[in-house]
Nucleic acid binder design. Structure first.
Lengths: 192, 192
DNA sequence: CACATTTCTTAACTTAAGTGAACGGAGCCT
DNA sequence: AGGCTCCGTTCACTTAAGTTAAGAAATGTG
């Protein structure tokens, strides 16, 4: 698991052994069971997550219905909005599968950033990269139909379709579970 | 215009007079006419923009149709995806109105960042903030209908509805111009 | 293993968005 | 002024998603 983390970091900056040890001394790793809720609506959390193994999801509870808006899998990083805004969270975060995460908070990040200025640079590059990537995702979402979105997901994250329940996928695609089911049979009929 | 820029920066870091002068010496300010295309599909640009006054938009050309996915107005910053990926741009950027922008490139940013480490911090905080904000926008988009999206826009950015042509707004809301027109009359009828 | 619960599928019906076409107004050009 | 393009609206029609409900399949639990 350490390796996954260091491989990820190595894409951005080069760490010395000392720096690696400083990181490890923070006791970041957490093992969480499927179904565990990491953050509840209304809570003020200060934790950021990085998925080493498994899958976590973000969902809103609107009119008693769960609306899933994001999935984070291996090598994905997540800083909840409420950490930035210091306001109560508008959404839930829960584990889709048994997962291994790193859990860090602003204090720990500040400590690392002050000891190793490289980290500040990594964080900037990383969040700029994520911002750009998310912009593209958003653009694709806006410019395509539910069916196209599904086919697109099938290309880009085929694993998600296997490991995640359909009704969660549906809201991720911006539709109802029944519509997703129908849309899938429609696609199957076309290909015959 | 200088004031707008410095006011914006002041939200994140405190600048000395020296630092302000270093910034001004970069000759960042540009005045651009309505309709000017800042970036074309296929181009490899290195420029980032910050809107001091006016409005610019991002759009894709798909099957001969313009699909607008973003508007940037006063105090909005934009680093095109192609600047990060170093690949040809997938979209266009054009001026909706006569505008005043700052135009910067990676070299200029690197120079400032190395002279004043504060800037690095500002950039990180800014892009994390933008990332979080955009995530919320994306979530709202996914979890709401075209009609709700329009009403939401009416609340959050009422100016956009005034200053931007409807057919550009339509694709921004993920629908066709005819549907936007219909949806607007539907809302009007309801309120009577 | 049996039972309960959750998840997925199917179907009939309603509602809203996509499509193609026509019309009228605004602004532009010469 | 006449002619032009562009834009927004409207309409009739098509297609797809939302809604409600029922039942089958899969999963979890005692």
């Amino acid at each position: 698991m350490k390796k996954t983390l260091f491989d990820f970091i190595a894409k951005y900056i080069t760490l010395t052994e000392d720096e690696k040890n400083a990181l490890l001394s923070l006791d970041l790793f957490r093992s969480v069971k499927k179904g565990t809720i990491l953050l509840k609506e209304g809570q003020k959390s200060i934790n950021s997550y990085f998925v080493l193994k498994g899958c976590i999801r973000v969902y809103y509870l609107i009119d008693g219905e769960e609306k899933t808006t994001a999935f984070y899998t291996e090598m994905d990083a997540l800083t909840p909005h409420c950490v930035m805004s210091q306001a109560p969270s508008e959404y839930f975060i829960s584990c889709v599968e048994d997962s291994i995460l790193t859990v860090s908070n602003a204090d720990m990040e500040a400590e690392i950033n002050s000891k190793f200025p490289k980290f500040e640079i990594m964080c900037r590059v990383l969040s700029q990269e994520l911002l750009a990537k998310q912009q593209i995702d958003f653009d694709e979402f806006k410019t395509s139909s539910p069916e196209q979105r599904y086919l697109n997901l099938l290309q880009k994250r085929p694993d998600l379709i296997q490991r995640v329940p359909q009704h969660q996928l549906a809201s991720y695609l911006g539709i109802k579970p029944q519509s997703l089911s129908r849309l899938r049979t429609r696609i199957l009929e076309k290909s015959n």
